[in-house]
Design a protein around this nucleic acid. Structure first.
Length: 544
RNA sequence: CGGGAUGUGGCUCAGCCUGGUUAGAGCGCUGCACUGGGGGUGCAGAGGUCGCAAGUUCGAAUCUUGUCAUCCCGACCA
């Protein structure tokens, strides 16, 4: 435990429950134009940095958090985004942690081309069908002046190139050359790359036309070994989600209808966002011999026979940044778990001109003392924000960006050899002696990390139900107000017999089968919709 | 690709129905001053050929037609 620290009020960090009450009070859409938003108005209203709040309009809140926290912005190219430094540092931190985990499980990085010959994609029927609609196609290679003074593409390519939506085919084609003997196996390679999927509808971080990701592609001599790899990597993702992102996830298998095109089995981790929708945060595919047959990845076994290899692929993307935002952020902006935070602690000097140098000197030594501490193997990241701007504005800047700990240090604190400490996750400030802070700061960061996980886990518990009949299912997934649906639903664990026959119902309610959870899922029952005997339970939810 | 809407300073928008002097506001930005445990105050300032094209008219941000772009709702999706 974190000794010697004043009690934090747990009520401050409550879950979503009270938001419902405020729905009627803020009719966002039809608000009259604000003629003169006076300071008096501002002072009276309950202050939130983000407008609208989650309860008022969740999707808009999400956009506003991204803007307020300076994570990313839309680009001139439709569906693509500019990831700004604060957002990109999150991705870099994720990359570093994941990359270490990949290396620790025996993988190496490599890089494969952005362009894929169209013919490669055509080789695996199911795979083409799955991606054809969202492929960007390059057909020309040269620009020349056109009569109107602009430019036009001139040299038509003999064979169109696809901008990779994923790299199974081109990597498979390469592996086919590399693999000859069982001694060449396994191949355990990962690549960090960008991919393009020409989506109709995009949302920052969650679904953009171009996104950043990693894709692992492995080849094995035996089915069992490939399956083990598939399982191992989904466990790595779950570990990362839970321990770095402070995001609870459920590991499970996709139903045939939800599987990756061309995969024999797709495993995923599913998380619950604060609007109770599910988000697929990572996938790991057992590809069987489908791609090795399409790409001719053949090896000679120990006994001399020619055999098709077994392959896997697995990936996570910048979507994880979206997951992070929607898991922890609140109505004052972004909240980032310490282990991924670009900055752990920001120190705000407070001084008048005459005390300036003394305060800065004090802060400088404090920052050094904090940086000397190691948080999970790396120095604590401390920023001193001495920009010349109003204190309030500066404070809110860091609140909105989600810096876990904020220290305010002025002459009065110096006199008492203490600091004013505010935790972003709780939103309250308390005075604390300097020595105590230095002694306990690592524990404090861990406590914040843990409390974020606990809070997210509580939300998920509170909104997970078991449903055994269709009426309850309909009630659970139907909003009170169809015009502007309130936050509703959650994860419903249901026995089901046949995916196909559920489609009309699921489509009507906009619910999907998220996964068949690995945990606690062996008791048989009856299908919630048809009453037929059913061996497995699945998680049903609305999803991103 | 079907249905709905919108294009006016960096951002959010008002003005348009009922055409008429140098096109407005809030925020943001720049400068100065006062401030300083809280997104403060005052003063001064920069920034727009009103998406584009044609038409009607003495006169168009405003009316008409065309065009382009974007956004929202549907079918698809990490």
């Amino acid at each position: 435990m974190f000794r010697g620290v004043p009690q934090w009020s747990p009520a401050v960090a409550g879950p979503l429950v009270p938001f419902q009450a405020s729905l009627a009070i803020f009719p966002l859409r039809n608000q009259p134009p604000r003629v003169s938003p006076t300071r008096i108005d501002m002072a009276k209203a309950p202050k939130n940095a983000i407008s609208p709040t989650r309860a008022e309009d969740y999707p808009e809140w999400y956009q506003q958090v991204i803007r307020a926290a300076d994570l990313a912005e839309n680009s001139p190219v439709r569906g693509c985004m500019v990831i700004k430094p604060w957002g990109y540092q999150l991705w870099e931190n994720m990359q570093r942690a994941l990359d270490d985990m990949f290396k620790a499980t025996g993988h190496q990085n490599a890089y494969f081309p952005l362009f894929i010959p169209m013919s490669f994609l055509e080789k695996e029927a199911e795979h083409v069908e799955g991606f054809a609609k969202e492929c960007a196609v390059v057909t020309h290679h040269r620009l020349e002046p056109d009569p109107e003074g602009g430019l036009r593409p001139a040299g038509e390519l003999e064979e169109p190139l696809i901008v990779r939506p994923t790299s199974e085919t081109i990597i498979g084609a390469t592996y086919a050359k590399w693999v000859q003997s069982y001694r060449d196996l396994p191949i355990l390679i990962n690549q960090w790359a960008n991919v393009v999927r020409w989506e109709m509808r995009t949302r920052m971080f969650l679904r953009t036309a171009e996104f950043l990701w990693q894709e692992g592609h492995t080849v094995h001599a035996t089915e069992a070994e490939a399956i083990e790899e598939t399982e191992k990597m989904i466990d790595v993702y779950a570990d990362f989600a839970r321990n770095w992102m402070a995001m609870p996830v459920t590991i499970g298998a996709k139903t045939p209808g939800e599987r990756f095109p061309g995969a024999v089995e797709t495993l995923s981790i599913e998380a619950m966002m604060q609007d109770r929708k599910a988000l697929q945060a990572g996938t790991s595919h057992f590809l069987g011999q489908n791609f090795s047959k399409a790409q001719e990845i053949v090896f000679q076994s120990e006994s001399g026979s020619r055999e098709y290899a077994w392959t896997t692929s697995w990936g996570v993307s910048t979507r994880l940044v979206g997951a992070l935002i929607m898991t922890h952020s609140d109505d004052d902006g972004f909240v980032v778990p310490p282990r991924l935070a670009p900055i752990h602690i920001v120190i705000l000097p407070i001084y008048k001109e005459e005390s300036r140098s003394a305060v800065l000197e004090y802060i400088d030594s404090l920052a050094t003392a904090l940086r000397d501490q190691s948080f999970h193997g790396a120095p604590i990241r401390v920023e001193v924000d001495d920009r010349d701007m109003r204190g309030g504005e500066k404070k809110w800047h860091h609140v909105k960006r989600g810096v876990p700990i904020r220290l305010e240090v002025g002459p009065k604190d110096m006199e008492k050899d203490s600091v004013f400490l505010a935790r972003r996750d709780l939103g309250k400030s308390v005075p604390m002696p300097r020595q105590e802070l230095i002694a306990n700061v690592v524990e404090l960061l861990d406590e914040i990390q843990q409390s974020l996980y606990d809070k997210a886990d509580q939300l998920r518990r509170d909104n997970t139900v078991t449903i055994t009949n269709e009426k309850d299912f309909r009630d659970y997934f139907t909003p009170q107000d169809p015009e502007s649906p309130e936050i509703h639903g959650g994860f419903a664990w249901c026995h089901f017999a046949d995916e196909e026959s559920l489609q009309p119902l699921l489509k009507e309610l906009k619910v999907t089968i998220r996964c068949i959870p690995r945990e606690a899922n062996d008791a048989s029952g009856t299908c919630f919709a048809t009453g037929k005997p059913a061996a497995k339970q699945a998680i049903f939810a609305k999803a991103y």
